[in-house]
Amino acid sequence: MLTRRIIPCLDVIRGRVTKGVRFRNNVDLGDPVEIARRYYEDGCDELVVYDITASAEGRPTDLDMVARVARAVRIPFAVGGGIADVADMARALEAGAEKISVNSLAVRRPGIIREGAHAFGSQCVVLGMDPVRTDDRAACPSGYEITIRGFRERTGRDAVEWARQAVDLGAGEIVVNSVDADGTRQGYDLTITRLIAEAVPVPVVASGGAGCAEHLRAAFVEGKADAAIVAGILHTGLTTIERLKRELVEMGVPVRVET
């Protein structure tokens, strides 16, 4: 029985985990290694660490931080931010990450997905995408448009079409981070999550909007997600991984609990 994964997401700015709404009003939440270790010990299934300002600052991923996280946890984690080419991917994997997440880079240069999948296998290449609702059904038949550069730039590209193309190129997993739902704690955008989960043969991760266990249940059942990213409600102490999992078990969702 394959269980649904719960994945805390750490947004790191200058070596500190931060949380903001739509990349603004960032609050310092602490040391990424300590936080990663705490979530690991609390039973999370995987982690995502985004070096969110690396690309904007024109520098590579903070590999020292990646290596320290790798030493601290015995579960898989993905790294994103600051990746420019396959050599950057190789360095992050060598530092101990399991997967590399590409987002804006893949939109600008889709070939990076194929290069990464060829060099390391599809399971290492995660496509992160930030879709936003749109009324422009001519350009985006799914009703969702891809944004890049931390929601700042619209691309005019259809989210579902891009997901299919990325998987054809070799992406092994897709993180669907809804711009509309991000930071709201009102629940994941189930529509786009499900559209993409039904369109591609690889695992899909719901992201943005988690407020409680019911939102995760909905992402797994109605949204057909294989995994869900959780951030704010953990970082602020509103709930814990252990509690979320207990609640999901009561709702009949298969999640991993250590025996």
Partner: peptide, 27 residues
């Protein structure tokens, strides 16, 4: 979905020295 990715339950089928003290089913 392919790849099979995530935590799955393994059922141990027979005794082995490396399984000493390990639960019969483990994620």
């Amino acid at each position: 979905k392919i790849p099979h990715m995530g935590w799955n339950l393994v059922r141990w089928l027979r005794p082995h020295p490396v399984l000493e003290g390990i639960s019969p089913t483990v994620f």
